[in-house]
Simulated assay, not measured.
Amino acid sequence: MSRKFTASKAQLRPDPRFGSKLASKFINCLMHDGKKSVAQKVFYNAMELIERRLPNDNPIDVFSRAVENVKPIIEVRSKRVGGATYQVPMQVNKVRQQTLSIRWILMAAREKKGRPMAIKLADELVAAYNRDGAAITRRENVHRMADANKAFAHFAW
């Protein structure tokens, strides 16, 4: 049976400048309309801005740490039991943690208006590195919601 999609993990190559698969995945998520060179330019400009703002830190380490800081440990999922829908807290697996982290950072950067994307992305990555910013707020809200609904944790099967 043929598969509709190939696993991106199998085909993913490290990015040319830093040799990081995480950076490559991030660039692919940043990309619009198949314009990878534009996405790479935005990402690398953001890395240069981070290097200027935090001269003592390696920009790819700042990026990796920012993604790590945004990763959620637990999330709520809707579960229908008997006619009622419950928000059930569940553990998040590693692949989904990374996906959500990247998605939230990009969403937070895109929500800011009026400046070039490289600057917005650099701001959000530095904020996530320092454990503040919109992406971290999103993570905290997800954790708070999971904590509020822990009474329904016994529905997680």
Rank of each mutant, 00 (worst) to 15 (best):
R96H: 09
F152G: 01
P55W: 05
P55N: 03
R77W: 04
Q87R: 12
V88H: 00
I119M: 15
R139W: 01
N56K: 14
F63I: 08
D123P: 02
A127G: 03
W157G: 07
R3T: 05
I74M: 11
A148F: 09
E140P: 00
H32M: 14
A134S: 13
C29L: 14
R80Y: 08
N130Y: 07
E124R: 09
R13V: 06
A148N: 09
P116Q: 15
R65D: 03
I60E: 07
R3G: 04
I119S: 11
N58R: 12
A39G: 12
D33S: 11
S2C: 03
H154F: 12
R77S: 04
R53D: 10
K21C: 05
M145V: 12
F26E: 09
L12I: 09
V42M: 07
L100E: 07
Q87H: 08
V88D: 03
V42F: 06
K120S: 14
F26L: 12
G19I: 11
G34I: 10
Y129W: 12
F26S: 05
N58P: 00
Q87K: 14
Y129E: 04
S20H: 04
K35C: 14
E75S: 13
M1A: 11
S2R: 11
T85G: 01
K25L: 15
K4T: 10
R138W: 05
I27D: 03
D147W: 09
D123G: 01
A84P: 00
K79P: 00
N149I: 06
L100F: 11
A39F: 03
S20V: 03
F155Y: 12
R53V: 07
A84G: 00
V42Q: 09
H154Q: 04
N93Y: 08
V62K: 02
K112D: 11
S101E: 05
Q97G: 02
R103W: 05
A128Q: 07
V81Y: 07
R17H: 09
S78R: 08
F18D: 12
R77G: 02
G114Y: 09
H143M: 14
V42Y: 02
A156W: 02
T137Y: 01
R144H: 06
W157K: 11
Q40H: 05
T85E: 13
I105M: 10
V42G: 01
M90K: 13
N69W: 05
V81R: 04
A39E: 11
M117D: 13
R52F: 12
A66S: 09
Q87F: 06
